[in-house]
Amino acid sequence: MNSELLIGEAAKDSAEHTDIHLPFGLLGFERIKNYSLIPAPRAAPFSWLQMAGDPSLAFLVISPDEVLPTYFPEISEEDVDYLDLTNPDDAGILNIVTLHPGGSATVNLKGPIVYNRNTLIGKQVVLLNATEYALKYSLPLAP
């Protein structure tokens, strides 16, 4: 069984696309505002956040619930208003995963993407309690 997974396969295999609009883009990618969120069918619970304009480029993302049950992101009043989050269940949270050469993986807990599940508008926010969390939190790998 091939243990590798290609982005293209993820897109092809999954009918579940959620189009997410990030009016500010991601930090460093401010001009790219439209993404598709695609569950990675053979690498659950990871998902792909694929650039709409260039589907060959994507970020690997994960829900923080799968990583750190004690994650309590504090989001500024401004961001809550901007995203029109009226109750906590409205907020979807995605943390960006980095795959490093050598096979290790880390996840960014300081600057998650927060989106409104109803409007599908999101923003990469810097948490008010960002100092409590790592930019490169190691995803432990089994030996």
Partner: peptide, 22 residues
């Protein structure tokens, strides 16, 4: 630092990835 992390995280299609399962 978040901008740098985003740039490092960007992945190109066709690149083989390990299958991870937290």
């Amino acid at each position: 630092e978040i901008q740098r992390a985003n740039k490092e995280a960007l992945t190109r299609a066709g690149q083989p990835l390990p299958k991870l399962q937290p």
